[in-house]
Write a protein that binds this DNA or RNA. Structure first.
Length: 476
RNA sequence: CGGGGUGUGGCUCAGUUUGGUAGAGCGCCACGUUCGGGACGUGGAGGCCGGAGGUUCGAAUCCUCUCACCCCGACCA
């Protein structure tokens, strides 16, 4: 804890690793690519879960749980799906001391087992829509693991819905993308761009994939959530039909959508700085931390008493509060530690303050300090946290705007892409051009933003016509 | 799978070239002094040196095999 963090400007990936380890979010597990999520990291995930779960319920969804093991043959029923996922499957071949008749796949995602089940659950249009979410772990054997961003096992939620019409399923796909965008912006304080994925980047088995894309502190993009319009692909593969009001037999229309523990990594990289983590108040497990300052036993007693009182008041006011009464560390040490852990507001309570009937509030997101009368703290804490939440979002938005560029020349693009940032460019819509860009620059088309204005132009690579700009960026 | 590298207390690493029976800093424990931006002193605990085999009077060090991890490439999002 004594040494300083590697500055993000010097070595961003190293800074990221250090923040995660030293803020005690997670550590590497014995199995390559898997991680142990530590209590503080898990507490952040629990906050996320709790908010998202509420949003899913508010949009009419219910939770269920499907098994982690899926018969291998299920994966093979949807051609694109198996092709996309087979390289990264973990497969159970032995169990109970015997070789299995049919291997079981550890789920990389649950479409197959869920659609196999939905076949039995859906008979009539009256059974639709079926709106189910699942909180689960999944496993994808990644070659380049990175804590939170890409681990072999990760936690997520996956929504799987079934609808009577194409229009309804499309609406659902976009509704849930909007839910993710609201969550990212209003809770994570992380501005995102909603848009459609290119043909090449879409989910294996989907008709269309939509994503929210966020910019990280180094200017790279991170896909923070996806929502898929699955059309009738899975219904056909698993023979899921319903009888319409007119008595006709129809295949159902499907969606799936998910966000994962990757969002914890997104939080680190969206807001973190030289001091470490910066958590948005609405998701911070600890929103205010009280650090007592004293000399000698006598002062200690007085100060701690005032601190306990304040702790109770803050909790009553609705702020998640921690009193750091550890006697073995001095205040300076604690300041650094709580900054590293990203706590939004620190409250310093010392003899000098108590004499004046005040305390000092220090804000993590902008480093500012402010003095408040003792009795005002509990009254103002929630609005102070709100301000910090807004301030953090504004800061992230400003950073993104500064690092977003419209570029029309491929030469200019190639020159600037290594500096990071989002590039709004015209693209001819073909996979060939997309691949060429990736091969030559390692940047990818993040998505085709919904809110991009209609603007006729020419593809920066081929000069062919293009109707609007897409976001191109290097990505995690 | 190809190229390169690393395995030594909880962490970061020295020691390996030239074999002689294991060290430092941080962390941890105890006591005392400290405490408004990462305190200090004194004492202490903790390691069959990734694993197996071999050479030798003697191996962290040399040889053989093996395992794991990291970086670059390939692959993947």
């Amino acid at each position: 804890m004594a040494a300083k963090l590697t500055p993000p400007s010097e070595d961003y990936p190293r800074w990221y690793q250090e923040v995660i380890q030293r803020a005690e979010l997670a550590e590497n597990a014995p199995v390559r690519g898997s991680m142990i999520i530590k209590p503080y990291g898990y507490a952040i995930w629990e906050q996320m879960q709790s908010v998202l779960d509420g949003m899913f319920k508010d949009t009419g969804h219910v939770n269920a749980y499907f098994p982690v093991l899926i018969p291998e043959s299920f994966l093979k029923k949807e051609a694109e799906h198996v092709e996309g996922f087979s390289p990264e499957l973990a497969v159970v071949t032995h169990a109970g001391g015997k070789k299995l008749e049919e291997p079981y796949v550890v789920r990389p995602t649950s479409e197959t087992i869920i659609w196999d089940t939905y076949r039995n659950w859906i008979q009539s249009y009256r059974d639709l829509p079926l709106l189910i979410n699942q909180w689960a772990n999944v496993m994808r054997w990644e070659m380049r693991p990175r804590l939170f961003l890409r681990t072999t096992e990760f936690l997520w939620q996956e929504g799987h819905t079934a609808h009577a019409t194409k229009e309804e399923s499309h609406e659902e796909t976009l509704r849930m993308l909007e839910v993710y965008a609201r969550f990212a912006e209003d809770y994570m304080a992380m501005p995102v761009i909603q848009g459609e994925k290119s043909e090449r980047e879409k989910f294996a088995g989907a008709v269309k994939t939509y994503s929210i894309e966020a910019m990280m502190g180094d200017g790279k993009a991170l896909q923070a959530g996806t929502s898929h319009d699955l059309g009738q692909n899975f219904a056909k593969a698993f023979d899921v039909k319903y009888q319409s009001a007119e008595g006709k037999e129809e295949y159902v229309w499907a969606t799936s959508w998910g966000v994962s523990t990757r969002l914890v990594g997104a939080l680190v990289m969206a807001h973190g700085d030289e001091q470490g983590l910066v958590l948005p108040p609405r998701l911070a497990p600890i929103q205010t931390v009280i650090v007592p300052i004293y000399r000698g036993e006598e002062q200690m007693a007085t100060v701690l008493e005032a601190c306990s009182k304040m702790e109770a008041e803050l909790k009553a006011a609705g702020a998640r509060t921690h009193l750091d009464d550890r006697d073995q560390f001095r205040p300076g040490y604690k300041f650094n530690e709580w900054e590293l852990k990203g706590v939004p507001v620190r409250i310093e309570v010392g003899p000098r303050d108590l004499e004046k009937g005040e305390v000092v509030l220090a804000f993590r997101h902008n480093g500012e300090k402010k003095t408040l009368p003792l009795e005002a703290v509990a009254k103002e804490v929630m609005s102070v946290l709100d301000e910090a939440q807004k301030g953090l979002f504004e800061k992230a938005l400003k950073l993104r705007e500064e690092r977003t560029h419209s570029v029309d020349s491929y030469d200019e693009f190639k020159e600037r892409v290594n500096d990071g940032g989002f590039f709004l460019c015209h693209w001819d819509g073909t996979t060939e051009t997309e691949e060429k860009i990736q091969q030559e620059t390692k940047a990818t088309i993040r998505n085709i933003p919904f809110d991009a204005p209609d603007e006729a132009g020419e593809c920066m690579v081929t000069g062919k016509p293009s109707a609007r700009r897409v976001i191109i960026s290097k990505a995690y």
